[in-house]
């Protein structure tokens, strides 16, 4: 069994009166690609945001290499630097160029010197096919280009794992492909990835495991073959049928 990178135990999140996550348990192991699917409002984003500490869980534990990161604030920044996030809305730093977007975290958080950071950043910008745009500001880029820079920014931190929250949902259809291609290559390269997505073909093709969320719980957690061909729950079957009709 591969070594677990992120381990989630009894995670709960309550917004006001609403219990959005109810007792979520699961593990992401090193090198694994896990896709999270589920209908709108089932708590997928909330789960990812809890893992990235953008939301404070109401209860439960999050272990990173066996250490509970909800316990210490200091460890939590180190942890954030090592578990990256790619957002649906890209969220590139608008005041910085593509290159600076990829170096600022290395310089300010990882305390690398500027030259070294620029070398790393250039490599990852090249990997996502954006090396020509290192001086461009976000407002000068298309959606697909922004998302590729955002992926390079996350990679530049040389993360242990990368979280993606519907990275292609805000893109025009013709740009979805370029981003998915980058993600497929990353998956092949052995990066640990946790991807919330509505792209079923992508989930089927690249993931080691698919997690189906429904109403704040994980209903099924299995191999893509099992989930797509032989779902155990009626809810899963319904959801898959609906998303196929779209």
């Amino acid at each position: 069994m591969a070594q677990p990178v992120i381990e989630i135990k009894n995670l709960k999140k309550i917004f006001g009166e609403r219990e959005v996550l109810k007792d979520v348990n699961f593990t992401v192991s090193k090198g694994e690609v896990v896709c999270i699917i589920g209908s709108s409002g089932s708590g997928k984003s909330t789960l990812l945001r809890c893992i990235n500490l953008l939301e404070t869980p109401t209860a439960g534990e999050i272990y990173y290499h066996g250490e509970d990161i909800l316990k210490s604030k200091k460890a939590s920044h180190q942890y954030c630097a090592k578990v990256g996030m790619v957002f649906q809305q890209f969220n590139l730093f608008n005041n910085l160029t593509a290159l600076e977007n990829c170096t600022i975290g290395q310089i300010k958080v990882l305390k690398k010197d500027k030259r070294e950071a620029e070398t790393v950043a250039s490599n990852y910008l090249k990997l996502v096919g954006m090396e020509q745009f290192i001086n461009a500001k976000p407002k000068q880029l298309s959606g697909g280009q922004k998302q590729r820079v955002a992926i390079a920014r996350a990679l530049s931190m040389e993360p242990d794992a990368l979280l993606f929250d519907e990275p292609t949902s805000a893109l025009d259809p013709e740009m979805v492909g370029e981003v998915l291609k980058v993600m497929k290559n990353l998956a092949k390269s052995g990066l640990t990835m946790l991807v919330v997505t509505h792209e079923m073909a992508f989930a089927r093709e690249v993931s080691d495991r698919v997690v189906f969320m429904d109403g704040g719980v994980i209903l099924e957690d299995n191999t893509p073959e099992e989930i797509f061909n032989n779902p155990k729950f009626e809810r899963t079957r319904e959801f898959l049928k609906r998303s196929k009709n779209e």
Binding site: N52, L53, L54, H77, Q78, Y79, C80, A81, K82, G84, M85, F87, Q89, F90, N91, L92, F93, N94, I104, G105, K108, V109, L110, A150, R153, A154, M157
Partner: peptide, 18 residues
């Protein structure tokens, strides 16, 4: 300023003040 800017900064490990 869009909240996403702060969240992205947080997600690469920056402190609040950074």
């Amino acid at each position: 300023i869009d909240k996403g800017q702060y969240e992205a900064a947080h997600s690469i490990g920056m402190t609040h003040w950074q």
